[in-house]
Design a protein around this nucleic acid. Structure first.
Lengths: 249, 249
DNA sequence: GGTTGACTCTGCCGCTACGTCAACTTCTAC
DNA sequence: GTAGAAGTTGACGTAGCGGCAGAGTCAACC
């Protein structure tokens, strides 16, 4: 008993194209190929096809299915592995849903669509190479340990404080405040305190280098200047004054 | 202020290849292209890029992102649509996880990997076209309404009964029972009762046609013959006898 | 015996969002 | 002048087929 490609496709609830594909990748070969080139499948093929489709419905990849069916791999082990992957995927999507909900609330509340990155010198994971180059490996690791010790909420709060500080700088700048004035210097002090929490001492040299970066490095410029073009330069000026007055080498 | 492709890529935490790709699909064009062919990006580009990457992290497709950023589509509406898609995906994966767990339990309990389909004349969703052709649209719809009225558990139980009946046929056949013997006829009666529950009267003509199908159609043959080659033919013989003795036109 | 219609074959493009060469040119620094 | 970093275009690969083009095969009917 054997059947044509259409017949067997309909039998199993799939298409002839799929069967040709399975043939091509070596997952399911026809039992016979006629002199006209036609594919013919027997009962054994049908059984194998049904198992393939079952595993596919469960979400296994075609190579994984091949391994299971060819006995190179214990089917229970394959399913357990697959289960782990599915659970991870479910969790990932769950987290993404939360992010989208948060963003949606903000957008509906009238907020602009903005990159949420902290964009400051202590986003270690992002700037590792440069931080180690500029400040040494030890300083990086100290900051990194501190960062890892924070909970998710603490990390968020830390980032949010920086965003608030940046926004305050922007407001002061747009209101025409002077960089060496009381208001700007008060904000700068908050900024310095914020920086100091990372476990590394923020001395004059460090602080001044950071101030230069705010203007020289587009990552910082763009993010501070979104509170108004020139904000980054304003912050630099304020930081220079602060360093002169309050910090030592 | 403008930056090279590398600089802007590092700024935003992506790669130059990605930027070229975005340029190619028209999602983000450089602000300027030098006479040497080099791409240069300004602050506006950086801001747009940051928004692109934010939306991408949230899982939106690049065309969807383009629509949002070009103002062709309300960003809140886009996010809500996306949220629905994500939730559906999460549910789908959840169901798949359940299926894999079930299958895993069975496989670990020693069961073979078998297509779980009922493979009988009343899997309406699968055989709609043929059922309507053979038995009329009315009969199909009657069966369909009945099927939809069942709960998931009831559907499972209904399918399981058919699997049990098929297995009993297989056992009887392998034990050398006669198709017109008492045992085979008792099983056939259960089969007839099972069929009758679908809301369509199972008369002689219908029953005999089904018996022929079990042998002629590979979908049925293969599934019954997995209890031993020849089982399908045995079932047909038993059904013929049963129809002669018990059923009318 | 010719025609029609159903079926089959082998390619090849398309889909997502880029990664990864390859081959070549340009810029920058010593 | 030359190395090395960075830039360019172009093409292939990814998972699993869907869909189409162009051509051959088969069964049935007139």
């Amino acid at each position: 008993m054997e059947w044509s490609i259409q017949e067997i496709a309909r039998s199993a609830g799939t298409t002839s194209r799929t069967l040709r594909h399975y043939g091509q990748i070596g997952l399911l070969a026809p039992s016979r190929i006629g002199r006209n080139g036609y594919r013919y499948y027997d009962q054994e093929c049908l059984l194998r096809l049904q198992r393939i489709l079952l595993l596919r419905e469960l979400g296994l990849s075609l190579p994984a299915i091949a391994e299971v069916l060819d006995g190179q791999r214990d089917s229970a082990a394959a399913l357990r592995t697959h289960l782990r992957i599915l659970e991870q995927e479910r969790d990932r999507i769950g987290r993404q849903i939360e992010s989208v909900r948060t963003t949606l609330r903000k957008v509906e509340g009238g907020e602009q669509l903005m990159a949420k990155d902290v964009f400051d010198g202590f986003d270690h994971t992002r700037y590792e190479e440069e931080v180690t180059q500029r400040w040494g490996k030890e300083a990086y690791q100290r900051g990194d340990r501190w960062w890892r010790s924070l909970s998710e909420d603490e990390k968020k709060a830390f980032g949010q404080r920086q965003l608030d500080i940046a926004a305050d700088f922007g407001r002061a700048y747009n209101a025409g405040a002077a960089a060496d004035g009381e208001e700007a210097q008060a904000i700068t002090r908050r900024h310095h305190e914020w920086l100091s929490e990372t476990g590394n001492p923020v001395n004059r040299e460090y602080f001044l280098a950071l101030a230069e970066m705010y203007v020289a490095d587009p990552r910082f410029t763009a993010n501070y200047d979104r509170h108004g073009a020139g904000t980054a330069a304003f912050i630099r000026a304020a930081m220079k004054v602060y360093a002169e007055r309050r910090l030592t080498g």
